[in-house]
Amino acid sequence: MNIDSITNGIVIDHITAGNAMKLYELLNLGDLDCSVAIIKNVHSTKTGRKDIIKIDADVPINLDLIGYVDPGVTINIIKDEKLIEKRTISLPEQLTNVIKCKNPRCITSTEQELPHVFRLTNRAEKVYRCIYCETKYDG
């Protein structure tokens, strides 16, 4: 299978196999005007199989969201066909407007303007708590 290399843009690599479509939807990549390639079930020496997303433009993407959905993903920034930056995304310390607090007693339930902010309180168990009411996010 031949997918053209990109000149300027982003390659989201080492996506857990099966997660590419989910990230595509959550990152609203369908709204972009540029080419976006989703490559599924690519052979990976580390994990057996992986997904890859290639975005043919240097657009801002929500790294916190990627880190929350699929920690361990690698972001490659390409400029003039060269790799200029490579980053592995881990679970972010804080999430803003990525997930929503579901506690009906939380202040965010009545004040719609407030951003939904969560803080990572247990990395090993991937526990995020609302900064306002401290309720654990249960998905």
């Binding site: 506690n103 007693r105 939380c106 202040i107 965010t108 004040e111 900064i131 306002y132 009411c133 309720t135």
Partner: peptide, 23 residues
């Protein structure tokens, strides 16, 4: 009555805020 309201208050006030109970 809403949990976290005093936290929101503390983020926006220019004087100290004491939580006297939030839900």
């Amino acid at each position: 009555p809403k949990e976290g309201a005093p936290y929101v208050a503390a983020m926006n006030a220019t004087v100290p805020v004491i939580n006297a109970g939030d839900g």
